[in-house]
Simulated scan of single mutants.
Amino acid sequence: MASMNEKDYYAILGVDKDASTDEIRKAFQSKARKLHPDVNKAPDAEEQFKAVSEAYAVLSDPDKRRRYDAMRSGSAFSTPGSYQGGPTQGDPFSSSPFGWGFPFSDMGYARRSERRSRSYNPRAGADVSFQVDMDDETARKGTRRGVTYQRYAPCEACEGRGSVRAEHAETCPTCHGTGRIGVDLSGIFGLGVMEMECPECEGTGKVVSDPCDVCGGSGRVLTATELVVDIPAGSHDGDVVRVKGMGNAGTNGREAGDFVCRVGVPSERLTRQQTSGFRLVGFGLPFALLGAFTGTLSSMAVFLVIVLGLGLYFAFAGGIRHSSRWWRNALASLGNGAVEGVILALFMAMMFSCTAGRASFGGPGYGYVSG
């Protein structure tokens, strides 16, 4: 959710910055009538209605409007681009002889802080994931890889607190600590007061009293971090190397997440087609056993030929010679298919048994003898 000072409430309502309270009220009433979900059935009507209601709740109150104008002029709406919590696609190790990866292009961008917000919202940082693909030989011997990646690091200016001078957060002056604000709609729809999340504290009820100029009050900044990851010998596809505390820093002093390096060995993976093939083979085997046990194998011949034939074709279309780990993954897919097949085969066996029992109960030789 965007913070209060990131939103242009005047533009949302379509009024000038020096608009009077009456002009703001009329603009809100006009937009609210058009956007109310009971009237407007457009998919985004509800979100737009909430946006104009939030804008009206702030701009119609002189104190809230004064704080909003002050924060808006101070932040100048300067925000970085989106951050996905990890590196971009491409070969991250082709940028230098040592193997450092630079998975982003704008180094200056990484020096800027994240969005400015007075909200005091301590949350643990998220992990940063990074995929490293290698061949069988490298995975067998192990390797060291240098990575330069993008993450949120603790702000040095405020030591991660979000505030340079104040020790503690203060009660939000907009919602008075409730985390909610009300918008009076009784004059438009007769609905009374509608409550919504406070845009200044973002529902927490607390704000940073003097937001740090560097991080904007969050306690963390977007930056570039260099790290050497030791991938141990004998690694396999899907293994994880975790470096504690080297993920995204938490907000307002909370603990950081981890850097998670995921090992990729493409030669050990089954393709989607191979996985489907082994599942088909596994699915067909219980039916073959059921047919042999019940003496109905001949009646299942066409079904089994199609299922097993297609399964074997998909499974081995790329060849038969593979690593032991590939075969282990193949057996796992085979087992998953077999479980599905067993369930359906048992159900069919029960149906066959019940049908046979009813035929025997109602067939020739059965009768009622009166006494």
Score class of each variant (00 low, 15 high):
residue 172 C to M: 02
residue 149 Y to P: 12
residue 42 A to M: 11
residue 2 A to Y: 04
residue 168 H to M: 01
residue 199 P to F: 03
residue 218 S to A: 14
residue 356 A to D: 09
residue 111 R to E: 12
residue 73 S to D: 12
residue 78 S to Q: 15
residue 288 A to S: 15
residue 315 A to C: 04
residue 103 P to K: 00
residue 246 M to C: 06
residue 248 N to K: 00
residue 199 P to E: 09
residue 301 A to S: 15
residue 154 P to T: 11
residue 201 C to Y: 07
residue 109 Y to L: 14
residue 158 C to T: 13
residue 341 G to D: 07
residue 243 V to C: 07
residue 331 L to Q: 10
residue 225 T to I: 06
residue 40 N to H: 07
residue 79 T to Q: 10
residue 189 F to I: 06
residue 12 I to N: 02
residue 5 N to A: 13
residue 35 L to G: 12
residue 369 V to C: 04
residue 52 V to K: 08
residue 45 A to E: 09
residue 157 A to G: 04
residue 311 G to E: 05
residue 354 C to M: 14
residue 219 G to V: 07
residue 110 A to T: 12
residue 39 V to G: 01
residue 266 P to I: 03
residue 133 D to E: 13
residue 140 R to T: 13
residue 15 V to P: 02
residue 252 N to F: 10
residue 65 R to Q: 10
residue 254 R to I: 00
residue 196 M to P: 01
residue 31 K to G: 10
residue 234 G to W: 10
residue 202 E to P: 00
residue 11 A to Y: 00
residue 211 P to E: 08
residue 87 P to W: 00
residue 168 H to E: 13
residue 15 V to A: 11
residue 167 E to F: 02
residue 110 A to P: 02
residue 270 L to I: 00
residue 215 C to W: 03
residue 187 G to K: 05
residue 216 G to S: 06
residue 27 A to L: 11
residue 251 T to C: 02
residue 197 E to N: 07
residue 253 G to N: 05
residue 301 A to I: 06
residue 240 V to S: 06
residue 32 A to M: 07
residue 340 E to F: 03
residue 133 D to H: 12
residue 250 G to I: 03
residue 270 L to Q: 02
residue 163 S to F: 03
residue 217 G to Y: 05
residue 71 M to V: 01
residue 46 E to R: 13
residue 273 Q to G: 01
residue 147 V to N: 07
residue 186 S to Q: 08
residue 70 A to R: 08
residue 209 S to P: 11
residue 110 A to L: 13
residue 338 A to G: 03
residue 35 L to V: 05
residue 122 P to S: 09
residue 79 T to N: 06
residue 74 G to E: 15
residue 114 E to S: 10
residue 75 S to A: 14
residue 296 T to L: 11
residue 173 P to R: 05
residue 61 D to H: 09
residue 256 A to C: 01
residue 262 R to F: 00
residue 296 T to M: 12
residue 56 Y to M: 01
residue 297 L to M: 15
residue 319 G to A: 12
residue 325 R to L: 07
residue 234 G to M: 11
residue 72 R to Y: 15
residue 219 G to E: 07
residue 233 A to P: 11
residue 113 S to L: 00
residue 196 M to V: 03
residue 213 D to N: 05
residue 156 E to F: 05
residue 127 D to I: 02
residue 129 S to I: 07
residue 169 A to T: 01
residue 53 S to R: 11
residue 368 Y to L: 14
residue 110 A to F: 09
residue 326 W to I: 02
residue 22 D to G: 00
residue 268 E to P: 01
residue 175 C to M: 04
residue 140 R to N: 09
residue 156 E to H: 05
residue 71 M to N: 10
residue 276 S to E: 15
